[in-house]
Amino acid sequence: MTGKVARALEIKFETLMKPGSLIVVGTGIQFIGQITLEARAHIKQAEKVLFLVTDPITADWIRDINPTAESLYPYYQQGKARINSYVEMIERILGEVRKGLRICAVFYGHPGVFVYPSHEAIKQARLEGFSAKMLPGISSEDCLFADLGIDPARTGCQSFEATDFLIHKRKFDTGCSLILWQIGCIGDLTFNVGPYDSRGLHVLTEYLCQYYDAAHPAIIYEAAEYPIFDPTIEHVPLAKLAETQISPISTLYIPPQTTASLDYEMLDRLGIDSHVLASAPQTINIPAESKKFFDELK
C-alpha cells in the first residue's frame, strides 16, 4: 500500500470515528514554563479537561485557562493500592470521551513516562472507536540529562523503575549510565500522603554493590520543582546510598564504571575505520562535579 493511499484511508477512518476524542498532554516538571505551546492550546480548547498534577499552582493555572478542568487527585487515597486509583482515573476519562466531548487529559511531566492511566486511556479509547493521541512533554529524565550534563548517546543509558529493577532482576550493563526511578518507595505499591518507608533502599544498595565498587560515585537527583531553586544533586559513594536522606521523587543516577571495548570484527563488518575511533578521546561519562567530589575524597 502506498503512503498516499494509507494516509487517505487514515483520514477516512478518522472521519468515521465517533464524536468524542482524547488528547493527552504533559505539564513538564517545573510548572508552567515547561508546558509546550501545543499542550497549552489543547488544554484551552478542550471541552473538558481532567488533570493530575503535583503542584497547586499548575492546578490553578489549568483551571484558569479552562474552567471545565477537574482534578483526578481525589482518586488517590491514603493506603489505597495505586493501581486501583489508576483504573478509576481511566474510567473517569473514558466516561467523558463517551459523552462525545473533546477531552484533554493533563499529567505532570511527560504524560507517557511513569504514567499508567494515560497510555491505558488512549488504548481503551481507540478500542472503542474514539480518536486518541498523546503529545510528548518534558520528563524528569529530560531534566536529569540537562542538570547533570549527561548525553545518553555517549555511553548508552538504561532506565528502570527501582522496584521493577529488583523484582525482575533486570539485566543491565555497568558500562552504561544507569538511572533508577522512585528509589524512595521501593517495595511500596500504595499511595502514601506521608513519607515512604525507605527500607527498600538497603536492599537496592546491597544489590548494586554486587555489580559496582562500593566507592563508585552515584548521584541522588531531584529535578527542581520551582524555577528559583536549583535541582537537588547529591553525590554519594554507592555503599553509602542507604544512609542518605531521600524523598519519594528521588532518582538514582549511576555513571558507567567501565569503558566498553571495541568489537573489531563488527567494526570491519560496518566498514568503520578503527584508527579513527582509536584516536578519539575515551572518556567515561562522569559529571564534572561528581569527579571533583570524589577526587577530593582521595
Binding site: Y108, F191, G194, E225, P248
Partner: peptide, 12 residues
C-alpha cells in the same frame, strides 16, 4: 495534603 510530592508512583 502530602508532606512530600506524591508524584506518579508507578506500580511495577
Amino acid at each position: 495534603s502530602p508532606t512530600t510530592l506524591p508524584g506518579f508512583i508507578f506500580s511495577p
